[in-house]
Design a protein around this nucleic acid. Structure first.
Lengths: 112, 112
DNA sequence: TATAGTACCTTGTTTAACAAAGTACCAAGT
DNA sequence: ACTTGGTACTTTGTTAAACAAGGTACTATA
């Protein structure tokens, strides 16, 4: 058991939250997301991101349109659906609660 | 895809962190942990907790001793090993970084 | 000798991350 | 024309973890 693996575990779900958030700010394609996640030090690889986007699409939380690129293959530009927007609001709340809950646990040093 | 499932996902890994933290404060047995996690609104069930404790034991991050109880079967009282303590320090850092990274993502509204 | 409460354990299912491969498009150099 | 490098999206197989739903076993009380 190494802490890298645990770090991976911690990120689960949060990744979904972050991606929905990035999409909520305007049309982006996968590489845009990778850049932003990487700059926030949330490591993510293609093999994780693409299947996640496909899941979000199937759940109708996001939608996309193809757009030609002058510098390579066409790109999928993602947007949030109305359902996705509601879902994101819910996740924001969940995230806040989770941070609070965790902080409550890790700040209890002497209450036992 | 419902947000309950995502909440479950978000908790992964963090749960391990919280449990190590609870154990770090002094000997506890599983039910103690359940009480504290529940009061912090981090839902966890036996089917999750026991296998997790077994994993932590196998990784030699925690140790336990049996203690008789006057009100039922004997209990396993857990303590942190030295390795566990180092690991927990590492996780504390990881958690701090993750919160920071996530906040960076969700506070970026207009930088695109 | 039931019954209730407590404590711990196990099995099977489901889900997601990831590594490592692949396909396909474009532009620039030879 | 053809190779090379960069970009973008996809897929397959493996692994790990959470959970539901069951189980075992101990104690005390009636």
């Amino acid at each position: 058991m190494n802490s890298d693996n645990t770090k991976v575990q911690m990120r689960k779900g949060i990744l979904e939250f972050c991606i929905l958030h990035i999409i909520s700010r305007g049309e982006v394609y996968a590489s845009d997301m990778l850049v932003e996640l990487t700059s926030a030090k949330i490591m993510v690889v293609e093999g994780t991101l693409y299947p996640l986007l496909t899941r979000l699409r199937k759940a109708e939380l996001v939608d996309y349109r193809w757009e030609e690129s002058t510098s390579g293959p066409p790109r999928k530009y993602y947007t949030l659906t109305d359902t996705g927007r509601l879902f994101l609001d819910d996740l924001r709340e969940t995230w806040g609660e989770l941070v609070q809950s965790t902080n409550q646990i890790i700040s209890n040093y002497n209450n036992k």
